[in-house]
Amino acid sequence: MSPGLFAQSLVLGVLTGGMYALMAAGLTLIFGVMKVINVAHAAMIVMGAYLSLTLFRHLGIDPLVSVVLLVPVFLGLGALVQWGVVNRLAERDITLTVLMTFGFAIILEGLQGAIWTSSYQGIKTAYSLESFRLFTLYVPVVRLISAGVSLVLLAGLYVMLTFTSLGRAIRATIQNRTAAQLVGVNVRLVTTISFAIGIAIAGAAGPLLGMLFTFYPATHWLWIGKLLAIVVLGGLGSLRGAFVAAMLLGIAEQVTSVTIALDWAPMIFYVFLFGVLVVRPQGLFGTVERQSL
């Protein structure tokens, strides 16, 4: 692999990784507070892509505008679903809760197929195919935009988690639910809010995904696999870990698609996923402790 090609892969990988980080952030946040894998996470992102597509086609609304539109909608829906059904179940039975999110994923996939058919879609804006040169490097505009939007949103999330009292409550709940409750955190409310934020981020990621990639109802299976690889590599529940892992895997994916074959690029995620689970199940940043009393 020539240095030039490597530099090119690096640029594309980092730009794509930024968006991966955004998509994975919601998943890892939700796992952090609830200890539940939201199987429907990627299906929700794809839903965002479809909604943005429809807004674009019929009302001419730019996907970047629909990012702003979808966030409050998904935030509200997330809060509603969490408070209405997920919460009650999650406090009783984690296994059933996972099955419930599996059910959600399937419902979304079926709905998308019924409404938008199962053919490939993509959001093609006026600037979709534009790119520019930076020295010798080729930089597609949409990737730059999506990476930029992702970074802005992630920075917002970071500031919220680090400097606000809500953020402290969320981090406390992630670390130790019982202890957080003991020091007066309303963990139920915090869980609902965190879940809603996670879903809102998924909604924001939807239009970006739609601009960068083609999608169809079943694509969420590809994406949930990628996201799980990121989240597991970064350590489940760790946002910082997810960010680093997203960059690493974004780059690894680009390098694979250049050096081996485009078809095999998704496989790199699973290689990492299974590899990490074998060698270090807690991921790069996570810690595990057996439960006992």
Binding site: I37, F102, G225
Partner: peptide, 29 residues
């Protein structure tokens, strides 16, 4: 199972969830 069942926690869900897709991808590729 060796990958995902030695610990408790979500590894089993993750592995079984992604395994189908991996298998399908392999048969396709």
């Amino acid at each position: 199972g060796f990958i995902s069942l030695r610990t408790r926690g979500p590894a089993f869900v993750i592995v079984t969830l992604t395994f189908t897709y991996v298998a399908q991808l392999l048969m396709l590729d």
